[in-house]
């Protein structure tokens, strides 16, 4: 499974940058930016077009993999490289111990990631990871106060100390690194096409021609369709899950979204499936306060253990539990990357 995901912020950033350029008065600058984006989108397609059997199971060194689109907005080197793991207690760990509870910012509307199961309890891949972290620090996986926070509140909640960690399908990128600290990557995702079973759509390719394709407003997928649409008719909705509503009502023919979220959609409607290969890559990480380096190291240690054990690792167990039928079976966690300091 080779995945990459870029979130709304990147497109946003791109747009803002474009706006600034326009402000400086350059139609040519706009054209150049467009050309760059187009090139960035088109380049990897040559590598990941369907039919080539391109399906690497492991990605050990992201830097060496095929150039991914939309990376031009990332200004730093290896954003997913984090601090080296350590089990040493620091001030943040002390504080959490004293409080006796880990405060975790999670999603509750993202099926299979963080959602309320029918009996009202939070469940999902992200929630399992929160439990593993709580168990390591406090010795009890139930010693967690869950805070359901919307996307826009993830960074403020960390900065204002309202939560200790955010485990909420949050992509590691350079812009966010300015505000928060990330653990090593615990999941790799990418933009992919979701279509009804039996649909003639085969992926992010010419089979989209003339089809109504749904994307979330401001998302990477929307930007991708804009720069290389393959003749698709774009339909924009406020939220990725709204796309599934439109698909079920027959108002669109396919969806492009992050495949991790698409997995959640496919799990809610067995009649749709992911088609083709992912055409971007991005990594999810646990976000923490920028000053909590002891906690970052501790979480990285937890992740080391979480990944270890191959098929029987906690990671693989949780993956199977939540994504059995909707994501490729033989997936492994992304290898951690570290930086010094």
């Amino acid at each position: 499974m080779r995945i990459r995901r870029t979130r709304a912020e990147r497109a946003d950033r791109l747009r803002r940058a474009a706006g600034r350029l326009r402000g400086w008065g350059g139609v040519s600058a706009m054209a150049a930016a467009c050309a760059m984006t187009a090139a960035a989108v088109l380049l990897p397609l040559a590598h990941s077009s369907p039919g080539t059997g391109h399906h690497p199971a492991v990605v050990s060194d992201p830097a060496s993999v095929d150039a991914a689109p939309f990376t031009l907005t990332d200004t730093c080197q290896d954003p997913e490289a984090s601090l080296r793991p350590s089990a040493l207690d620091g001030p943040t760990i002390e504080r959490i111990r004293k409080a006796g509870k880990l405060v975790a910012g999670v999603d509750q509307n993202s099926f299979k990631w963080g959602y309320r199961n029918p009996d009202g309890h939070l469940d999902g891949f992200d929630i399992d990871l929160v439990k593993a972290i709580a168990k390591d620090i406090l010795g009890n996986e139930e010693a967690v106060i869950y805070r359901a926070i919307p996307t826009s509140q993830r960074i403020p909640a960390l900065q204002e100390g309202r939560v200790d960690i955010v485990v909420r399908t949050m992509t590691i990128n350079c812009k966010r690194l300015e505000d928060v600290a990330f653990s090593t990557a615990y999941f790799e995702a990418g933009q992919q096409v979701l279509a009804p079973k039996g649909s003639p759509i085969t992926g992010y390719d010419a089979s989209l021609k003339g089809r109504r394709i749904c994307t979330a407003a401001g998302s990477t997928a929307e930007a991708a369709l804009k720069s290389q649409g393959y003749g698709a008719v774009p339909v924009s909705v406020p939220n990725q899950l709204d796309c599934l509503v439109r698909l079920q009502l027959g108002e669109v023919d396919g969806i492009i979204t992050d495949n991790a979220l698409a997995a959640g959609q496919a799990a809610q409607d067995p009649s749709v499936q992911l088609v083709g290969a992912p055409f971007t890559r991005e990594f999810y990480g646990v976000a923490m306060n920028k000053g909590a380096s002891d906690l970052v190291r501790r979480v990285n240690k937890v992740l080391e253990n979480y990944r270890a054990g191959g098929d029987q690792s906690p990671w693989a167990t949780s993956y199977r539990k939540h994504f059995e039928d909707v994501l490729p079976k033989a997936a492994v966690p992304p290898a951690p990357k570290y930086r010094e300091g």
């Binding site: 959602y115 309320r116 029918p118 939220n239 899950l241 509503v245």
Partner: peptide, 14 residues
């Protein structure tokens, strides 16, 4: 919603 699927919320918003 009764099946606990977040999709219900999307339908309600629609």
């Amino acid at each position: 919603n009764r099946q606990g699927l977040p999709l219900g919320g999307a339908y309600l918003r629609y």
